[in-house]
Structure formats: C-alpha cells, structure tokens
Simulated scan of single mutants.
Amino acid sequence: MHYELLANYLAPTYGNIYQYNLGANGLVGLDVQQWTDDLKRAVRHYLMHELPADVKPRLLEQYPDLPTDSDEAALDALIEATEPWSLAFAVRKAAVAAVPTLDGLVGDVDDMRAMGELSENISFWLDRHASEAQLEELAELTGHPEIDLHVPSYKPRPEGYHFIYTKPRDVLDAWQQVAGSSVSDLTDQEWDLVVKALRLKRHVRSSVILRSYRELNAKRRTFNGVRYKVAHRCTWSQVPRRYGDSRTLYQSDRTYKMEGLYRELLEKLGEEAGAERVVAWLKDRTSARHASGASS
C-alpha cells in the first residue's frame, strides 16, 4: 500500500475508497463510493497541497484532455471527470511512475501480499518507462508468455505483460540486461542540463503541447543510442537494442541535424559547467562532415 497515496490519505475518514458498499446482508452491492461535497473538498485539498511535486505531472499526463490554464483548473476538471476509486488508482500509478528506477521500486519485498501488489506496480512502471522493443526483449529473457486478452486485434503492449508469474527480482535482473547503461550514456546531471535546454513544448496543429515524461525518456534513450554509436565507432545495426530500433535511431539523428536541434543545444550548453561531455558530442554532430544531414 506504499504507493496508494490518495487512498491512504482518505482512509481514516472515508474508509477504503475502493470497497463496494455492503448491504444489510453483508453482500457486495453494485455501487462504489460516490462523490460527496466533503469528499471532493478532501481530495481537492490533497491534490493541491499534499500530492508530491514529482507525482502531480505524472497524474495529469494520464488525462491529456484536461484544461492547461493552471494545475488548479486541471485538478478541478479531473475530479469532475472521474470517480473517487478511479482517481485514487490513477494517483497510485502516477506515484509508481515517479520512481526513477525499477531497482528503487522493487526494493526488498518479502511479504507475499506485498509481492502481488509489487508485480502490478512493475507493470505500471514499465508502461511509463519501457519501449515496446524493451518489453518484448524483457519477456523473452524472463520466459514470460504473452497474456492473451481475448481480443482479436490484440497487440502486445505494457498492460499485456503483467509479469505476475515472474518473481520481481527476476524481472529486475532481466531489466538490467535490457536497459543497462553504457559509459557513453548521459548521466542524470547531464540529462538535467539537456532537459533545461530542450524545447519542452512542441507545436501540434494550432496547439502547444508540453512534452510528457514518457516523451522525454524516449528522447534520452535516442540521444544515448546516438552517443553509443559515436563512442564505440560502430554501425547503426550494432547499437544495442535497449536504445531502440537502429533505423529509428538513424532517422532521428538525421532529423535532429537537419532541424537544427543539435546546434540549438550546443548554443545553449556551450558554456554550461558540467556539460563538457555533452558539448563535445554536440560539436561532433554539428561538425562540417555532418552539415548535410548525413548520419554517420
């Protein structure tokens, strides 16, 4: 229950937010706990003032159609658009997604009941942090069978890999093989500098959309893939799968050159303390031999 932030906050006053109402005969009823004015006020207070700062954006990005004027307007709309139990569940998923590493999520869990919750949390975490290629490789390494959702058009996605038959430690060991780091990878400190310099908003038709954490994670993986190729002087096809599809890496690198993203980052980070490795890499990607957009 460690990540049930909203449910735990409400429990002393409102009981189990997930529990169905019980009839006089003790049988489960058909209606879940509904909103009341008091419950709305309590939830609004928690979301506005108690929800950890690193969890809030991961909650809001689950609902892309919310107002973008302010967090207050977005959270008010969120309360109106959800039921209490579904909002509590979304907060739990956001809290899990906010954990930086799978190692930090798995920890040292021995209790069997906690293990069951952990397996579900692992799926939530992978949904936010893993690419589809990484999930497929992870499933292969753990010998995990694809879960058949009995949908004719079913295609493997994170929610299709629950890993409920695999020990969390085994999933963690496999993940470290799939997503292990290289000395050429950007450190967290270097990535923080890059994020500050990136265009954090992108234009879609007439709207300006804030880049999600998932999108930023994907860009970090791409950058690391390009850096791996440069550092190891290998071909695109020799770049490890954990960095994504080699053709996608090639095309992304070419696009970043042609659209001037590398040059823009270089101009912003050129004198930044701690960005020396990044600057050296950016100078390579913007050198005369790459000016035409050729990706090598």
Rank of each mutant, 00 (worst) to 15 (best):
S287L: 00
Y243N: 10
G225D: 07
L269S: 08
A273V: 11
H232Q: 09
L269R: 01
Y262D: 08
E267N: 12
G270S: 13
F223T: 12
T235R: 14
R289L: 12
G244F: 00
F223D: 15
S287D: 12
R242N: 13
R241Q: 13
F223P: 07
H232I: 03
Y262R: 01
P240H: 01
A280D: 12
T255P: 10
A275Q: 05
P240N: 06
D245P: 02
Y243G: 11
R254A: 14
E271D: 14
R289G: 05
R241Y: 10
W281K: 00
K283P: 00
L282S: 03
E259V: 07
L265R: 01
R233L: 10
T286D: 01
D284A: 10
M258Q: 12
A288K: 15
T255N: 15
Q238Y: 08
M258R: 15
D253V: 02
E267L: 08
V278Y: 04
A288P: 07
R277C: 01
D245N: 12
Y256A: 12
E259Q: 11
A275R: 03
A280P: 00
R233H: 14
S252V: 09
V230Q: 14
A280M: 04
Y256D: 13
W281D: 12
E276I: 00
G244E: 05
R242M: 14
L269T: 06
G260C: 03
E271A: 12
A231S: 07
R241E: 13
L266S: 06
L269G: 05
K229Q: 12
D245Y: 02
Y228I: 05
A231L: 03
R263P: 02
D284S: 08
S252E: 07
V279P: 00
K257F: 08
T235A: 15
E272V: 15
E259M: 15
G244V: 02
Y262M: 02
A280L: 07
M258Y: 09
F223A: 12
E267D: 13
Y228W: 05
L249H: 02
R277I: 00
R227T: 04
A231Y: 11
H232E: 12
A275V: 02
R247T: 14
V279I: 02
V230G: 02
A288H: 10
M258S: 15
E272I: 04
L282V: 01
Y256R: 10
A288L: 14
A275G: 05
S237I: 02
T286W: 02
K283A: 06
G260F: 07
V230F: 08
S246T: 09
L269C: 10
E271P: 04
G270M: 09
G244T: 04
S287F: 03
Q238S: 15
V226N: 08
K268Y: 11
R254Y: 06
V230R: 11
T235S: 15
W236P: 07
T235V: 04
G270R: 06
R285W: 05
G270W: 07
V230A: 13
L266W: 05
R277Q: 07
F223V: 15
G274K: 05
F223G: 06
R254V: 04
R285N: 08
H232P: 03
D245V: 03
Y228G: 08
Y228T: 11
S246I: 01
S287M: 01
E271M: 10
G225K: 00
R263K: 11
R277N: 11
R277G: 04
L265A: 09
V226A: 09
R242Q: 14
